[in-house]
Design a binder for these strands. Structure first.
Lengths: 348, 348
DNA sequence: CTGAAAGCGCTTACAG
DNA sequence: CTGAAAGCGCTTACAG
């Protein structure tokens, strides 16, 4: 069927190993060398025959497979899926193929998946981690078995691994600071505390530092039903909490997604509550349509593109340079002001 | 390192082939058989040793790799990425891993990718096709080399392949019908005609049949800059066309994405044009936040979940039953009325 | 009913 | 500087 190394060897009248060495990227590593002239000749023949190596054979024999495994938590609104897709895209440019697995931030799933990646000859893995839940010795050891492994974490790992610290807490503090500057007194934060534990705490602490009134009631817990149900879940939650004409007891609302923010604004409007006059609202993820809302929706920009660029850089550098020391980078999310957040008092 | 078939053979005191046959799914196909009792014993030993087959070795030796290749056109707003992700999810439930490649509806890329899937031992491929651009003999032949191959097309292929006809034209006609019933006279359709050629034509034809006024000017062509730039591109296009106080010469607007529709509504509002009184607007993809808009945004529901279910069914049935005749299914998108589309005259 | 052998297409020690 | 050989972990004809 397809051209093999054998075919090329036959045509070039050399041994299969000569072909392997000439075409491989391991130039000059093995004891086997080939003269420059025959190597060129072999390369040309391979080209003419349309040779493409069999990936499974390569992997089985200990070579690389040009495969990247992505271990991500794919839940909630789109950004995580888009992020994974973004990594895929960049990998393709390097001639790599990706395999995406949803690890659900679960240790057992992660371990199982890493083992599977191993059996599939994956060269490099990119793994998302929220709040260091995956920093376990067993996982660290598994990661180190791959030619390249990169953690994209919401916090920093102690273990010596390549890591991008994708900080979301700084932005949460910015949001709290803004609410304070806008003269708000009783902020609430809305979302699933399971997934946003750290964000909730950072926001509350900062709000408290700013002398705003916060307590256990400042969290509006949303139980997500499933994907694409954010709007329903948020509106249902608000109705449960403020249904029987209970007064709206907050003047600032920080939602863990733009969809949730839009759903809340819609619900508030129908209750006759004005945004931002009565309640300032800020979402999360900085969806491109935030600007089209009335009022425009303030949000938190994730800087996912920047993270993807850094992933690209670290991962494919590591694949070539195993000797480099562990890499560390920092990318922060940032608060984006728009009208729904209300104006700062000091700027009028 | 990991347990191999060899290890199991040693413990069970049988040959490697006995182990292979006992654990493989090809039960009873090869000439090699094993007595029920030893097969059970072998299975138990494998279990205890935590045996997991090496996927590359399996593939290289002619076995299955539990891998699905997805060939999709990943452009524009999210739905295609989500669809691909959805297929991934379902595949995982069957113990399959997926590889996603963006074929950009391009023949050369498709051929190259299918060959690569072959070299990687992919078992099944799911491929998206818009308007039969990929129905070429070479591609059909390549598809047939896989144990399973499924086309998800906007139209029907003549070639005998498993196919899901995901119809978008019926919905476009529903939209045209609705505009007519709502008393609109001068509809326009907005988006990239490259990607939406068929939709534009179906809409125009139907509009014309309904005695609305349409012509070449009824298409507002949008050049997309890149991902997540739909809002900018749409608003820029509108400004170019209606910038110098040129009157809005349409009373109904059908956008190829909800984001585009929201951007347009925003732009129209700022021009003092009322939706739906002056202009009725309908989007595409039925985003969950459409309901939160003011007015709520009418749209076209893709029924992607249903498509994913059918993919799941056809693909994994085919993997088990190569003898079945080619499968055909039909899934249609559908128009979803909301206030932005304006009310029908006959219903008040 | 079972086992020894060949082979899938590569890579990489190891001899010449 | 080059080639013949072993081996990666499986599957599947083929003998017994």
């Amino acid at each position: 069927m397809a051209t093999t190394i054998q075919d090329i060897a036959r045509v070039a009248k050399v041994s299969r190993s000569a072909v392997s060495v000439s075409l491989g990227s391991h130039n000059g590593r093995s004891g086997t060398r080939v003269s420059e002239s025959t190597r060129l000749r072999i390369k040309e023949i391979a080209q003419n025959l349309g040779y493409q190596p069999n990936v499974m054979a390569k992997g089985l024999a200990g070579g690389r497979t040009s495969t990247i495994g992505i271990l991500w938590s794919l839940s909630g609104p789109h950004p995580s899926v888009e992020m994974a897709h973004n990594i895929s895209l960049k990998s393709h440019r390097h001639g790599y193929v990706t395999q995406l697995v949803n690890h659900m931030s679960d240790q057992a799933v992660t371990i199982k998946s890493l083992r599977e990646f191993k059996r599939r000859g994956v060269d490099g893995v990119v793994i998302q981690d929220i709040n260091c839940v995956l920093e376990k010795p067993e996982i660290v050891d598994l990661l180190n078995e791959f030619p390249a492994a990169l953690v994209v974490g919401s916090s920093v790992w102690k273990a010596p691994v390549d890591l991008i610290h994708h900080d979301r807490l700084a932005a949460c503090k910015e949001v709290a600071d803004h609410f304070a500057a806008a003269g708000r007194r009783r902020p609430v934060i809305m979302g699933s505390s399971m997934a946003n534990n750290e964000k909730v705490r950072a926001f509350m602490e900062r709000a408290s530092m700013n002398s705003m009134s916060v307590g256990p009631d400042s969290l509006i817990e949303v139980q997500y039903l499933s994907h694409n149900q954010t709007v329903k879940a948020c509106q249902w939650t608000l109705k449960e909490r403020y249904g029987k004409d209970k007064a709206i007891d907050f003047d600032a609302l920080f939602c863990m997604s733009d969809e949730g923010a839009m759903a809340s604004i819609d619900w508030l409007r129908k209750r006759g509550v004005r945004v931002p006059q009565d309640v300032a609202v800020i979402g999360f993820n900085d969806n491109e349509i935030d600007d089209c809302m009335d009022p425009p929706l303030a949000s938190v920009e994730r800087n996912d593109d920047q993270v993807a660029d850094v992933i690209d850089e670290i991962l494919f550098t590591r694949l070539i340079h195993p000797e480099l020391p562990p890499q560390r980078r920092y990318v922060s999310m940032r608060f984006v002001w728009r009208e729904s957040a209300g104006r700062r008092r000091d700027t009028g």
